[in-house]
Amino acid sequence: MDWDWQYTWDEVLPALLDGLVVTLEVTVLAFPLALVLGLVLTMLRRSRRWYVRHPVRWVIEFIRSTPPLVQLFFVFYAVPLLIGLRLSALVTGVVVLGIHYAAYLSEVYRAGIDAVPRGQWEAATALNIARAHTWRSIVLPQAIPPVIPALGNYWISLFKDTPTLLAIGLLEILTQAQRLGASDFKYVEAITMAGLMFLVLAYGSSLLVRYLERRYGTVERVV
C-alpha cells in the first residue's frame, strides 16, 4: 500500500490537531483535579474519626475496582436519568478521569506519607505545631518529592487513557482518527499518525517528569 502524504498533511494532521486540543484539555484539567482530590482523600483516610475514615476507604476501593469506561457511561448516560444532571462530554471526561485517577494518586500519596518518619510528627507535636500546619509545612514537603516519579507516571497514564472518551463521543485524537478512517478508508495514515502523536507527547511528558524529579525529587530542595 502507498502512504498518502498529501492526505496525511491536508486531512489527517488538522483533524488530529483538533483532537489534540481536546485531549490536552481533558488531561490538563483532569490531572490537577486528581492531584488535589487524591491528596484530600489521603488525608481523610487518615482522619482520627472512623466515620470519615471508613467511607473514604470504601469509596477509593469502589473507584479503583470499576473500569473508567463503566464510570464514564454511568456519569454520561445514567446520572442524567437518575438525578437529571446532564454534563457535557468534555466535563464528564474531566470529572470521571479526575476522580478515577484521584483514587490511584491517593495510594501514591499514602506511600509517601507513610515514609515520613514518626519522629517528624512527634517533633511537630512537641513544638505544639497545629495539625494542619504539620501537614502543610512538615509532612507533605517530605512526602511528595519522593513520589514525583509515580505521580508523573499517572499523568502519562491519564493522558493515554483519554481515548476511552471515544465512548461518549468526545472528539479527542483517536476519535478523530477513527472518524477519518471510517469516512475515507485511510485507516493506516490516520491511526498511525494518532499513535505517533501519543508517542511524542508521552515521551515529552516522561522527559518533563525526569526533569521534575531531578529538580524537586530530593526533600532538601523543597524549602
Binding site: G119, Q120, A123, A126, A130, S137, I138, R221, V222, V223
Partner: peptide
Amino acid sequence: FQHFNLFPHMTALRNITEAPMS
C-alpha cells in the same frame, strides 16, 4: 529527642523559627 527529629527540608534557622512563627 534521641534521634534529633530535625525537619530535613528546612535549614537550621528555619527549623528553629518554624514553631515560634506558626
